[in-house]
Amino acid sequence: MINFRYHVVSLAAVFLALAIGLVVGTAAANGPLTENLNDQVNTLTDDKQQLRNDLEQTRAELKKNADFATETAPMLLANRLLNKNVLLIKLDGNDSGDVNTATDGVATVLGTAGAKVVGTVTIKEKFTAPTNSPHLLDLAETAVPAGISGALPGQSDGADTSAALLAAVLVGKAGTPQVEGTRTVLSAYESAGYIGLDGDFKAPAEAVVIVAGAPASGKDAKDRNAAVLTLATRFDLAGRVVVAGLSANGLVSAVRGDTTAAKSISTVDNAVTAYGQVAAVMALVERFGGKSGHYGSGDGATSLLPKTASVTNGS
């Protein structure tokens, strides 16, 4: 008869065998598993290093491209905009840092081309908010100089009316004096927080470069983006306009997608780069020659750069 001690010894032997089996099995499998894991780690390490090398190479190539654009700009653009007065407009937003950098780059290339930047106007996000339309309309009607009051659109869109007023006092023909009351108009909009100003604005601009970032977002994005396009078209009615975008999104896309605006407003979709900034100024030279186009590498661009166009001081 099998007694209780026998059962205990048997169970202990079974558990001991299981334990020995686990140890032996783990030891047997441990070698291949370890080797496999080591191989995977080494592969990932190699891939990471390759990606790092590729990134460094890309950065170096971009730096060379930027250097090339900067070094060739004088040969392409020297005196092509000699004594031309140009206004810079930049659109404020979440990417204002990149917009500021692109604006500074465009200003430098304009100087290389012999142009004079009469000033820079920053369009604040407050300007395009649909809720501010009534106040913008009141401000335009209050601030408008007597000499151009009849030039404002007769409708109730505050952003449109204000854009028309700003274009009327900031843009004009070569050699004409500053519109009387320009400083008063600009101060009124600046004090109300709709625009920022940098420059003397002592002479009207013959052309405008608008530096734009990403499109507006949020529940009122459609209205805000429409207001920005309206701003561009109002300045286009007053003079020559080039939209220099950080990408093909936002205002660049809106202009390219508008049949009327696309015919007269030139666009560049890579103004965050040195070669995009050169392209923007080349496009402005082309606008003085009576032509327009869309440049860069994004949707709607016809080529990377515009063909060089001659311009004389009297054009």
Rank of each mutant, 00 (worst) to 15 (best):
D67W: 09
F68I: 13
E71Y: 08
A73N: 10
L76M: 14
L76F: 08
L76S: 08
L77I: 10
L77M: 03
N79E: 10
R80P: 05
R80T: 15
L81D: 11
N83I: 06
K84G: 09
K84T: 13
L87S: 01
I89A: 11
I89R: 08
I89S: 13
I89M: 15
K90D: 15
D95W: 09
S96E: 09
V99A: 13
N100K: 13
T101D: 12
A102R: 01
G105K: 09
G105A: 04
V109F: 13
L110M: 07
T112L: 08
T112I: 15
G114D: 06
A115C: 04
K116P: 02
K116F: 07
V118C: 00
G119K: 03
G119I: 06
T120K: 10
V121H: 07
T122E: 15
K124G: 03
K126E: 14
K126D: 08
K126N: 06
T128F: 14
A129Q: 07
P130R: 03
P130C: 03
N132G: 06
N132Q: 11
P134E: 11
H135F: 12
H135S: 12
A140W: 06
A140S: 15
E141V: 07
E141K: 15
A143P: 03
V144S: 14
P145L: 03
A146H: 02
G147M: 11
G147N: 04
I148K: 06
I148A: 01
I148F: 01
G150E: 10
G150L: 03
A151L: 15
P153H: 00
Q155I: 07
Q155K: 13
Q155R: 08
S156Q: 13
D157F: 04
D157K: 05
D157Q: 09
G158A: 02
A159R: 01
D160R: 15
D160T: 04
T161Q: 09
S162A: 15
S162M: 09
A163F: 02
L166D: 04
L170N: 01
L170G: 02
V171T: 09
G172M: 01
K173W: 00
K173T: 06
A174R: 09
G175M: 03
G175N: 02
G175Q: 00
P177W: 00
P177M: 00
Q178R: 02
V179W: 00
V179M: 02
G181P: 01
T182N: 01
T182P: 00
